[in-house]
Simulated scan of single mutants.
Amino acid sequence: MFHLLDIKKHEGGISFEQVIDIKEHLMARSDDIIDVDPVKVVGNISFDSGLYLLNYDLSYHLVLPSSRSMEPVSYQHQLFISEVFIEEKDAIAKKDLIDDDLVLVLEGDTINLVESIVDNILLAIPLRILTEEELQNEELPSGNSWSVMTEEQYQALQEEKKAENNPFSALNGLFED
């Protein structure tokens, strides 16, 4: 957590390199996460022209359920995060930046690094995550009178049905002899 007064005091900003355990915070906000190792954060926070600039590299390892089989999958990822904050009292002067979602308005006198990390990890979780076996085997799940298909397979099926429903399809092959 960074206090705004401390950030303003340091002309070049405050550099940081930390390993932070955020497992409790992530697990409280998402039921999809099976496990998370402590994350490594390297960055800088500074003050410039009424704006607080938070930039950091984030490296982390999650265990997530496979989107196909629900088997645990190891997911290693690295992100570069850049966020800009403004104090509430200065929000009116820079309303155009707020309206364009370019800055975040601070509600207190601190910037919470852990909250930023958790938010950005949750936003970066992919919708499709597969085990190594599932990546190699392109066979999708199926059951009695149902099957999962890719978008390409669905489009091909729709084209096939469209051709079958054509009223002139019965005339195909009529004049071949």
Results as ranks from 00 to 15, higher is better:
Met1Asn: 11
Met1Pro: 10
Phe2Gln: 11
Leu4Ala: 06
Leu5Tyr: 05
Lys8Arg: 15
Lys8Glu: 08
Lys8Thr: 02
His10Met: 05
His10Ile: 03
Glu11Lys: 15
Gly13Glu: 01
Phe16Leu: 09
Glu17Gly: 06
Gln18Asn: 12
Val19Thr: 14
Val19Gly: 00
Asp21Gly: 06
Asp21Phe: 03
Ile22Trp: 06
Ile22Glu: 04
Met27His: 09
Met27Val: 12
Met27Pro: 01
Ala28Cys: 06
Arg29Leu: 11
Arg29Tyr: 08
Ser30Trp: 09
Ser30Asn: 05
Ile33Gly: 00
Ile33Pro: 02
Asp35Met: 02
Asp35Leu: 03
Pro38Phe: 04
Pro38Trp: 05
Val39Ala: 01
Val42Cys: 02
Ser46Phe: 00
Phe47His: 14
Asp48Ala: 11
Ser49Glu: 12
Ser49Arg: 12
Gly50Cys: 07
Tyr52Met: 00
Tyr52Phe: 15
Tyr52Gln: 01
Leu53Val: 08
Leu53Asn: 07
Tyr56Asn: 02
Tyr56Arg: 05
Ser59Ile: 04
Ser59Trp: 02
His61Lys: 14
Val63His: 04
Val63Asp: 06
Pro65Asn: 06
Pro65Asp: 10
Pro65Tyr: 11
Pro65Lys: 07
Pro65Glu: 08
Ser66Leu: 13
Ser67Phe: 12
Glu71Gly: 06
Glu71Pro: 07
Pro72Gln: 13
Pro72Gly: 13
Gln76Asp: 15
His77Pro: 01
His77Ala: 15
Leu79Asp: 13
Leu79His: 02
Phe80Leu: 08
Ser82Glu: 04
Ser82Met: 02
Ser82Asn: 06
Ser82Gly: 02
Phe85Glu: 05
Ile86Tyr: 03
Ile86His: 06
Glu88Ser: 11
Glu88Lys: 15
Lys89Trp: 00
Ile92Tyr: 08
Ile92Arg: 12
Ala93Asn: 10
Ala93Ser: 12
Lys94Thr: 03
Lys94Asn: 06
Lys94Ile: 02
Asp96Tyr: 09
Leu97His: 09
Leu97Pro: 05
Ile98Glu: 07
Asp101Gly: 03
Asp101Trp: 02
Val103Tyr: 06
Leu104Val: 13
Val105Tyr: 05
Glu107Pro: 00
Thr110Asn: 09
Ile111Gly: 07
Leu113Pro: 11
Val114Ser: 14
Glu115Tyr: 11
Ile117Trp: 04
Val118Pro: 04
Asp119Met: 05
Asn120Gln: 11
Ile121Ala: 01
Leu122Asp: 01
Leu123Ser: 00
Ile125Asp: 01
Pro126Trp: 09
Pro126Ile: 10
Arg128Met: 07
Arg128Ala: 04
Leu130Lys: 14
Thr131Glu: 03
Glu134Thr: 15
Glu134Gln: 15
Glu139Met: 14
Leu140Gly: 08
Leu140Asp: 08
Pro141Gly: 03
Pro141Ala: 03
Ser142Val: 07
Ser142Gln: 15
Ser142Trp: 09
Asn144Val: 13
Asn144His: 13
Ser145Lys: 14
Trp146Ile: 04
Trp146Glu: 03
Ser147Met: 14
Val148His: 08
Val148Pro: 05
Met149Gln: 13
Glu152Phe: 06
Gln153Leu: 11
Ala156Asn: 11
Gln158Lys: 14
Glu159Ile: 10
Glu160Arg: 12
Lys162Ile: 03
Glu164Phe: 14
Ser169Asn: 12
Ser169Ala: 15
Ala170Asn: 08
Leu171Trp: 11
Asn172Asp: 14
Gly173Lys: 09
Gly173His: 03
Leu174Arg: 14
Leu174Ile: 15
Phe175His: 10
Glu176Cys: 00
Asp177Ile: 07
Asp177Lys: 15
